[in-house]
């Protein structure tokens, strides 16, 4: 009998993988996905914990090959919930005359790199983070699910609740945007 294996991120996922091993294999990627989407470490940790809990409580008896799309689907929904909650909070907390859109979405980082920053890898990573955070939500989702979490196009479509063609479009546009913004770092 041929064993089915699948690459999720950098981890080979076996069909007989235990839930504990699966959660361990995805926890870092999931956290990075959530942090880049929510731009807040605490919110990201909460989202990952909620996703892990829900998968363990409700979907642990599913075949292990289904865990990755299910887990990222749950995580995505949780991220959207937190984003909406934060958006509402910003609207209520914003002083009159200033809308939530006027506020920077994350800590401001200069968008004009100087020569020193070009050769600094930390700066390059910061610039990459910034560029990913600036992507539109759907493009960022497609980009993170495909490149970081290692899902294929069909699984990404399932997680995002859209068509395969739509995933390809979002992903292509995300890559174009990143390539443009990071042309000085990534030839």
């Amino acid at each position: 009998m041929i064993k089915q294996t699948k690459v999720v991120g950098v981890v080979f996922m076996d069909e007989n993988m235990t839930l504990a091993a699966f959660l361990e294999s995805v926890e870092r990627n999931a956290y990075l996905t959530a942090r880049l989407s929510l731009q807040n470490s605490e919110d990201a940790l909460d989202a990952v914990q909620d996703a892990m809990l829900k998968l363990s409580q409700q979907y642990a008896n599913r075949p292990s090959a289904e865990w990755a799309p299910l887990f990222y689907r749950i995580l995505r929904n949780r991220i959207i919930d937190v984003q909406r909650r934060n958006q509402t909070r910003k609207q209520w907390m914003a002083p009159t005359g200033a809308s939530a859109e006027d506020e920077p979405a994350f800590e401001a980082v200069s968008t004009e790199p100087d020569v020193e920053r070009l050769i600094d890898s930390d700066a390059a990573r910061a610039r990459m983070d910034e560029a990913i955070m600036q992507l539109p939500d759907r493009q960022r989702e497609a980009f993170l699910l495909r490149s970081l979490d290692g899902l294929d196009v069909a699984e990404t479509a399932r997680v995002m609740g859209c068509t395969v063609g739509s995933v390809k479009t979002h992903y292509f546009r995300a890559l174009q945007s990143l390539r443009k913004k990071l042309s000085e770092y990534m030839p």
Partner: peptide
């Protein structure tokens, strides 16, 4: 962060029936 991720994973597994 790694410790908190580990704690989250353990909590999730403990919640599994």
């Amino acid at each position: 962060v790694l410790l908190r991720l580990r704690a989250a994973r353990i909590r999730a597994l403990e919640a599994n029936p």
